[in-house]
Design a protein around this nucleic acid. Structure first.
Lengths: 341, 341
DNA sequence: GCGCTTGCATGAATCGTTTCAGTGACGCAA
DNA sequence: TTGCGTCACTGAAACGATTCATGCAAGCGC
């Protein structure tokens, strides 16, 4: 590979100093029109591309923000990423998207990669339940924003969706349809997500004076379609099969739906089903899925813009914020049409 | 933000020269055990993180490979990315994943970002049908590998899947089931993908001495679920509704499936349906989808390893390769069980 | 004791930018 | 003419690592 052409080569070619070339690129108003044109011509002729590493070495930080998500196989996170990416790119920053796959070790690896890269900041949905990775990261003083998690106190910015409200919406909708009990299918309860949605569902029961045990609970170890199929099988094996099911996530719901279909249990006539996230595939399921929509794109956008503010030119005006967005119920066929007494 | 601690600070703290610190980090065997320990202690004490920009400024290239995919909302590409990521990370390289969203302009933006970053290389599924973006990129002499496309000649490496074979598999399977004609639902025919799969389907017809017009064709502008729904509506409106449908992509197939379901057309009894890619949601559809599986993860892995070879320590031993992987048919319920006469 | 090798450590040069104090040249007012 | 300000440009220092020629000391054989 031939030696890279640098700013010096351009300067020689155009017959000016390196400083002038730099000015043409970064502050063209300081340069006379005629020199500007000459330098620009030299740049084009030589095919000069400025070295980002050199400029960030000087600047002390890079023009990249990193994003670390839990599960790229879940379209929900892809949406969040899309929102964040759009916002960051509008501000002229590159986005480095990475997948921790819920593995705290991978997460740690990536965080130290980001530290070495001196990224501008990080958008992260933490995978490590102990918080040790983030604590270590905080020491490096690289700004980060929690995504889809709410921050403990005012230690950092966070953007999340009100999961209690979402759980309430889902349960309330099912109760509206006339069901008097429901089953909650969730992932591990050490996830705040899963806990909060259950809390919301319980609140909906309480508001109708239904007892707490009107909510049965099936817990599976992961939040994907396979786990949903297992949950479906367990549902079908219950002595009293529920008439209403609320899943902590659309992937689970799709798995449950498939298990029910395979067992010839009709949705929504025999069992009504509600998912969570409103991913595209929820609407596209053979029985379109009622789901709690999270403003995923907006979450990504907001997170990115908080990060941009925190890492902006006057950093001290920034106060950490805790943004909580509201979910919305999207009713579709999986919870049926008529209400039953 | 306090000044970053640099290698000089570590050197002072440990009472050695900067060169020695660098050696401790990069070639520990050149340093005596006792100095090594002392330096390591200083590193830990000060929380030193080496600056990647400085080292890549010296080294002339970065330790990041970029990956630019067409559509991150398609789980197929997410799988490919996962394979590539795993391979690259095993070699100690970071992966920067970006989404061109099929927009040639976005693609160009990203490619110049990569050039400025002096990335080690790029894995790319091109979005620009004219090839102008890549041609411009080639001039910068940054190695790249085409993913899910086959390279024109020996100009660069490429990894793709044999789409003609895939189309053949799909059509052959439907014909096996007793159908004597089929409809092909595809995206824009300027995509090689869509063309080749059709070619394969035609070959299958020919092998059974069926006429070419036994294949009808519905073309939609994009390859997503929405477009699939449209295609489904158009299918239903046909005067002679087909008994077998082959979609160029699972997203299309899911859309078609949903449209059929909404119109009370039974799958597979009234219409048999085959998708392409075998994404997770294909198996999870209410009628599990027969699909042509592409070895997505392997494609990513292979592409990454070709890139690693090309950018390795002795580059001249590298000859561009054109790897073509074979697809596989996964039969599920959407094409039914029994054969019909 | 001398020359030789070996093992460790040093410190300056280097990578490609940005930035900033300085240098001329020029016009204008005193 | 001198002094001053403005404009366009220059050239060198800095950023933080890696690398390499060099130095120094100790060990070894003769």
């Amino acid at each position: 590979m031939a030696r890279m052409v640098g700013i010096k080569d351009v300067a020689r070619q155009a017959g000016v100093s390196v400083g002038t070339v730099s000015n043409v690129i970064n502050r063209p108003d300081l340069v006379s029109e005629q020199t500007r044109i000459r330098v620009q011509a030299a740049i084009d002729l030589l095919g000069f591309v400025r070295s980002e590493s050199a400029r960030q070495l000087r600047a002390g930080r890079s023009r990249i923000v990193a994003m670390l998500v839990l599960d790229m196989a879940n379209p929900f996170f892809v949406q969040v990423a899309r929102g964040a990416e759009r916002e960051a790119r509008a501000a002229g920053l590159g986005v480095m998207l990475c997948n921790s796959a819920q593995d705290p070790f991978e997460e740690a690896e990536y965080l130290s990669l980001f530290a070495e890269q001196r990224v501008r900041g990080v958008l992260v949905t933490p995978a490590d339940p102990t918080g040790a990775n983030l604590a270590a990261f905080r020491r490096r003083e690289i700004p980060f924003v929690l995504v889809d998690r709410s921050a403990p106190v005012g230690e950092c910015c966070s953007v999340s969706v009100d999961d209690v409200a979402g759980g309430y919406l889902a349960a309330d909708h099912l109760l509206d349809k006339g069901h008097v009990g429901l089953t909650y299918v969730s992932g591990p309860m050490h996830l705040a997500q899963c806990r909060d949605r259950r809390t919301g569902a319980l609140a909906a029961l309480k508001d109708r004076s239904l007892p707490e045990d009107a909510l049965t609970h099936i817990e599976v170890p992961r939040l994907d379609v396979d786990a949903g199929r297992d949950a479906g099988a367990r549902l079908l094996a219950l002595s009293r099969r529920p008439t209403a099911v609320f899943c902590a996530n659309d992937l689970l719901a799709l798995g449950v739906l498939q298990a029910l279909y395979a067992a010839d249990v009709a949705v929504p006539d025999d069992v009504a089903l509600v998912g969570y996230d409103d991913i595209e595939f929820a609407a596209a399921a053979a029985v379109p899925l009622t789901s709690v929509r999270q403003p995923a794109v907006q979450m990504g956008r907001t997170a990115a813009s908080l990060l941009l503010e925190e890492t902006g030119d006057d950093p001290d005006t920034h106060a950490h914020q805790r943004v909580v967005l509201q979910p919305e119920l999207i009713a579709r066929e999986s919870t049926g049409h008529a209400s039953r007494p």
